[in-house]
Simulated scan of single mutants.
Amino acid sequence: MQQHSGQHLITALADQMFGFKTTSWELGHQRTLIELDTPSVTAEQVAALEKNVNEKIRAHIPVVVKEHSEDDPEIETVRSRGLPDDHTGPVRIISIEGIDDNMCCGTHVSNLSDLQVIKILGTEKGKKNKTNLVFLAGNRVLKSVERSHSTEKALTSLLKNGADEHVEAVKRLQNSVKLLQKNNLNLLRDLAVLTAQNFKSNPGRGRVFVLHRKDGDSEFMNIIANEIGTEDTLLFLTVGDEKAAGLFLLAGPSEAVEKLGPRVAEHGVASKARRPG
């Protein structure tokens, strides 16, 4: 009832304040959407609409259910999509005193104060050049605040600072992670070159090179293959966690790759086999 009556109130005021007509609405499990017949709604308009909506709630305005006969001329003055062709019997109108009269067969609160509060979460691009307004009303607002507060407490414990500093703390962590990832990538490339050079400088090296590295990637394998060369050496390189998905590269003389490639691929999650050139 809170979400439904909240939709009636928002719809009426959006029309009165900005001329935004409601074309449809959706009552979801977590949030409610109102589709407005406008390509965009500014942040200032959202703020003004939310302010006005909550002022009406605090004004303790009655919500009254009225029934009219089909031929009552008052029906023509209310907001509606019109009656179905096969309609019979009285017409039910939900009246928010001094704000809105609308045909509706749904359940509603008896006073706007029962809505407690409405929070407009924002807008989304809708279909056919329309805008979806997302909101919560009543108990859903309280539950949302409770979830947000729990998240805030958890972040305060993890980040070791106050709620006002969470965003900046996360930005600093993101920058640190990006720098570490960049440094790690550079080190991994250097390690690949050194690994290949160490193999090439070994006078007793064979014609097969096998290596697994847990924290490697496809570039790591390619660097080693390019540094060692695949004309005379058969390389079988793997990267990734031993207990999870990974990658392998099989490279070397054509006849060896053609013979071993299909057999290796049968046991690999992801693979790359290549011949010289």
Score class of each variant (00 low, 15 high):
N52E: 11
P203Q: 12
D215A: 07
K153F: 04
L136D: 03
E242Y: 05
L83C: 14
N54L: 06
L159G: 09
E146H: 11
R207I: 01
F199H: 14
K160P: 00
M17G: 07
S40T: 04
T233G: 03
H4E: 02
I93Q: 12
K119W: 11
V64S: 07
A48M: 02
G6N: 10
G98L: 08
H87C: 10
V53W: 13
L83Q: 12
G82E: 11
V170M: 08
N54S: 09
Q3S: 06
V109G: 10
P73Q: 06
E55L: 10
T23N: 11
G28V: 03
T107L: 03
R140T: 10
Q116P: 00
Q116M: 10
L247E: 06
T195L: 14
C105R: 09
R213C: 00
A256G: 00
G89T: 12
L33P: 01
I223N: 09
I10N: 04
I61G: 03
R79Q: 12
N226G: 02
G98K: 14
D86R: 13
F236V: 15
S69F: 14
G138E: 14
G246S: 06
P253G: 03
V167R: 09
T77D: 09
G19L: 02
T238H: 03
K200T: 05
G162R: 13
H29E: 13
A251E: 13
P39N: 11
I93M: 08
G229K: 04
C104I: 07
K200S: 00
P62F: 07
K153R: 14
L247F: 11
K182F: 00
P73T: 13
V141W: 01
E74V: 14
N202T: 04
V109E: 03
A256W: 07
S113A: 05
D101G: 03
L179K: 13
N54G: 04
H68W: 11
L49G: 11
L159E: 09
I120K: 08
T11M: 05
G82T: 01
L187C: 10
K51C: 15
P276L: 07
S157T: 14
V269A: 12
K130P: 00
A245K: 15
D37Y: 07
G252Y: 04
N111A: 07
P73C: 08
L27Y: 04
H166M: 05
V53I: 12
N222K: 14
H68V: 13
F248P: 02
V269S: 15
K125I: 08
S95L: 14
S254Q: 14
A273C: 12
L187V: 11
N129D: 07
G261D: 13
H60M: 02
P84T: 02
T38E: 05
L247W: 05
V53N: 05
T88W: 00
S5C: 05
V109C: 05
E67R: 09
L249D: 02
S24H: 06
I75E: 11
Q45K: 04
V64N: 11
A256C: 04
V53L: 15
